[in-house]
């Protein structure tokens, strides 16, 4: 039996290598921008603005690349034939995406910080509350996880359906099914969120009551307290959704999702 950690490391290694290539492109763009600043074609503010923008683009492309890596795990023999329970494979892939994202953000953040310091542009970071910032980052991470989970659910459902129905040679038919499954999944999410909100309201938990029972810090943080509580409520909700959908994904993975075949074989 292969160990989950070995699979996790191999996945992380491969995804980090892919993401590093994206970082290199980003650095290349920054280099070009710096040169343009040096020859006087751009102002410091512009350089900063463009490079932050490109940093964001890099992070988004990174997200897509990781989603693609994850989807390949479900349908490629090189992963599915590994002697490891399917749910462990799923966890390894999810964690690998998280690790890769943290790496990507850390690098982009570091690069941006260096640029800010070097350019001496003032007022870029206003008084930022570190706790709130950290919570926002956690929220974003959980949202990304939710997105990956939804993409996987999509993909698995479509694979299941195209394996089950006859006449799947038609490309348009497959595309219709993908579209339908996306619509259906979004509706499910909608209902799920409504359901949770209803539950929360029934239990009488609101942002305000959260605030009154939790004291964050005596001086001048009460206002942030509300924001923080709401943030964490949302984080917990999203995390719950991720958990439930992941369990569903693992079930689908081990009972329905088969690997791709090379065309000639039967």
């Amino acid at each position: 039996m292969t160990s989950t950690s070995k699979v996790f490391w191999q996945m992380t290694k491969e995804r980090v290598r892919q993401v590093t290539q994206l970082i290199e492109i980003d650095l290349g763009v920054i280099a070009v921008l710096v040169v343009m600043r040096l020859i006087g074609r751009l102002s410091s503010e512009d350089v900063l603005g463009f490079s932050t923008l490109f940093g964001l683009i890099t992070v988004m492309v990174g997200f897509v690349a990781q989603a693609q890596s994850q989807e390949q795990v479900w349908v490629q023999n090189r992963w599915r034939l590994v002697p490891l329970a399917d749910w462990k494979l799923y966890c390894a892939s999810t964690l690998a995406n998280l690790a890769t994202s943290v790496y990507l953000w850390a690098v982009i953040a570091a690069v941006t910080t260096v640029e800010v310091l070097v350019s001496g542009v003032k007022g870029y970071w206003s008084n930022t509350n570190l706790v709130v910032l950290a919570s926002v980052l956690v929220l974003i991470l959980v949202m990304l996880m939710l997105l990956w989970t939804l993409i996987s659910l999509e993909h698995m459902l479509t694979t299941m359906i195209t394996d089950f129905l006859p006449g799947m040679q038609e490309k348009w038919l497959r595309r219709v099914i993908i579209l339908v499954s996306i619509v259906v999944s979004l509706k499910l999410i909608d209902w799920f969120v409504d359901g949770i909100t209803w539950l929360v309201n029934r239990a009488g938990i609101t942002g305000a009551s959260f605030n009154s029972s939790v004291t964050i810090n005596g001086s001048g943080m009460v206002m942030h307290g509300t924001v923080l509580a709401d943030l964490w409520l949302t984080i917990i909700m999203f995390a719950g959704a991720v958990l439930i959908l992941s369990v569903l994904n693992c079930y689908l993975l081990s009972h329905w999702v088969e690997t791709k075949q090379t065309p000639a074989a039967v």
């Binding site: 039996m1 491969e14 023999n77 002697p83 329970a85 399917d86 690997t259 090379t262």
Partner: peptide, 19 residues
């Protein structure tokens, strides 16, 4: 079970998906 079988079987298609 599937994971146990996978540990006992070497299938020529296990390279599918290698970069």
């Amino acid at each position: 079970t599937a994971p146990q079988r996978k540990a006992q079987v070497s299938f020529s298609a296990q390279m599918d998906g290698f970069n």
